[in-house]
Design a protein around this nucleic acid. Structure first.
Lengths: 148, 148
DNA sequence: ACAATGTTGACTGGAATGGTCGAGAATACC
DNA sequence: GGTATTCTCGACCATTCCAGTCAACATTGT
């Protein structure tokens, strides 16, 4: 598994914030409930996202979290690297130590895969994720109406 | 990290066996020394590769391990899936539980990446890995001669 | 018989994962 | 100013996985 729950939950939370962009702060408890994330655990992920400048948080009543920049300007690659650290699929690609690579034997295959993966992740914005989710919801709503 | 040392060491060992294809059994100790793998640990990896039909082993003096089929007929995808289990980058792609996917929000991006990755890994054979290593050795030998 | 080799399963220390909890800080509202 | 609400930060914890060791055993060639 390349992604842990950090990357999964963290992106879910960001999608939630993006969906409420421009509506003021969204509270931790709301995000946790809607996206099925343990609330106390979500704390750590929000802290990380704040440290890396993706969100701003406000305390006190009616406080919460919101995007620090437009959803179109946040790509999945940066988000996941913030949440997970390096996404390198193989140890010897992490630091590109030539000695490690010399003995590995499969590094060149994975280097290509890694490059393609990063390019793909960089091309998808948070806004794209939200749009995709909205489309999915419309489909499900249409299917439900059809059944009735 | 998608690959653990199992996938790394296991493929190294298979490259070693492929390099000595047709020369009779290669001993665990030799593989371990040449490829810098802890000998006792290598045991487990060879056992797994044997269970999945990639190698045959013979006991007794002059025993050892050898490929059970031609190196051209073994692809990196099957090797790694034997050694690592599933290579799914994301939990919700492992079983494709539609409920999990519905809440994930980034599964469609990773599904594409996963498909591309598997296609790439399926297209690389053990023989390709050996060929690549031989080429690399020739390059280094040429560079060394140039320095002298 | 015995030495060389592979086979198997039990065991282990350490790190990462996936959380929980509690004390505290900031802020809005009365 | 007091209080309720919300975020913040760090400590803590249970479980699982990783990477590896080890010992007992099975098989085979000489």
């Amino acid at each position: 598994m390349l992604l842990s729950t950090k990357g999964d939950y963290g992106v879910r939370a960001m999608i939630d914030l993006a969906k409420h962009e421009g509506e003021g702060p969204v509270q931790r408890a709301e995000i946790a409930r809607r996206r099925q994330i343990p609330e106390a655990y979500l704390d750590h992920l929000l802290a990380q996202l704040r440290r890396d400048g993706f969100i701003r948080s406000t305390r006190g009543p009616a406080g919460g979290h919101q995007l620090a920049k437009p959803a179109t300007d946040i790509c999945l690659l940066h988000l996941l690297e913030s949440l997970e650290g390096s996404l390198a699929p193989l140890q010897c690609l992490e630091n590109d130590d030539p000695q490690e690579e010399a003995i590995c034997g499969q590094d060149w295959v994975w280097q290509e895969i890694y490059d393609d993966m990063r390019a793909k992740l960089a091309s998808v914005s948070l806004a794209d994720l939200v749009e995709h989710e909205r489309e999915h919801e419309r489909e499900r709503a249409a299917a439900a109406r059809y059944v009735i």
